[in-house]
Amino acid sequence: MFKGSIVALITPMKKNGEICYKSLKKLVKYHIKNNTNAIVSVGTTGESATLTQEEHYNIIVKTVKYAKKKIPIIAGTGSNSTYEAIQLTKKLENSGISACLSVVPYYNKPTQKGMFKHFNEISKNTNLPQILYNIPQRTGVDLLPETVLKLSKLKNIIGIKEASGDLSRVNHIKSLVNKKFLLISGDDNTALDFIQLGGHAVISVTANIIPYKIFKICKLAIHQKFKKARKINFEIYKLNKLLFIETNPIPIKWAAKKLGIINHDYVRLPLTKLTKKNQNVLNNTLKKII
């Protein structure tokens, strides 16, 4: 179910900070049309950090509704509070989501033992499939392969989004876990290499605006047609980099609005809109690709 191109969906917002559900519906339809394999709703790119719990839940439920069972929805349910992560996960039990993406606890910097206990408690309190999310540059801690091995033995932990940037992790984790455990890249620029090393998918920021290209790269790579995949990957390499010219999701929201994919490009404070200088830089690259 979770192989290929998975989009880390942005959360469209109006100028007053309200969620733009009209744009969200448009966005979901856009990904169904362009063969995206699954949607991550309210992950880091979806600005989970600045949403209320009520908004968080409502966006996921609306995304499921708009998808009409035509595309699997993975809900971002992680928190640095084990209790909050469990509560949100349990609340979504009968929502129609296909799985949860649960980030390593951030800011409070737990030990490996603490991380294991955190995910173990979530696992015990739900039947929903759980995908771990390791992103040390944001969380301040690194979920090590040996801890992933222990977690992979739990009943409903089915995979990991590995965004440490260390490609050696693919083989390291693969050598420890069973064949069914999913390895998902969290970085567009190294996703092709990640899949070639034995990964199964990418959770992509870039897929918000060029889903057809990310889908094709993944499909070619999964079928081991790496020469063709690399040709497309090379074409979008600069774009992948520029979409992080300012903090994600600032650039991707601006690009999605520029291309008419969503109606607004507003982000919530403390994030701010893309600067004019960087708008020009990103626009010049978009013109060459789109």
Rank of each mutant, 00 (worst) to 15 (best):
K231Q: 15
L167I: 14
F116M: 08
D187F: 03
K68Q: 14
P110T: 09
A229D: 03
H31M: 06
E18R: 13
I122Y: 01
Y30W: 11
Y57V: 12
K180M: 02
S23Q: 03
A163P: 04
I32V: 11
I19F: 09
I222N: 11
G46S: 07
T285H: 07
V202P: 02
A38N: 08
T190H: 09
T206H: 08
T126E: 01
N280I: 14
P110A: 09
P270N: 05
K231H: 13
T45D: 11
N263L: 15
G76T: 04
K25D: 09
I289L: 10
L151F: 04
H56L: 08
I262A: 00
N94A: 11
K69Q: 13
P249L: 01
L242K: 08
L24M: 12
I32A: 10
Y83M: 12
Q196A: 15
Y107D: 05
M13T: 10
D187K: 13
T45V: 14
R268I: 10
T247F: 01
I74G: 08
S164E: 04
T275M: 01
L132S: 01
Y106S: 10
I210Y: 03
K258A: 11
P136I: 02
N134Y: 07
I214F: 05
E55I: 11
G260N: 07
I209A: 05
K65V: 02
L27P: 00
Y30Q: 08
S102F: 00
T139F: 08
I245H: 01
N37G: 11
F119I: 05
F194T: 09
A256I: 04
K69C: 06
L183D: 00
K287W: 00
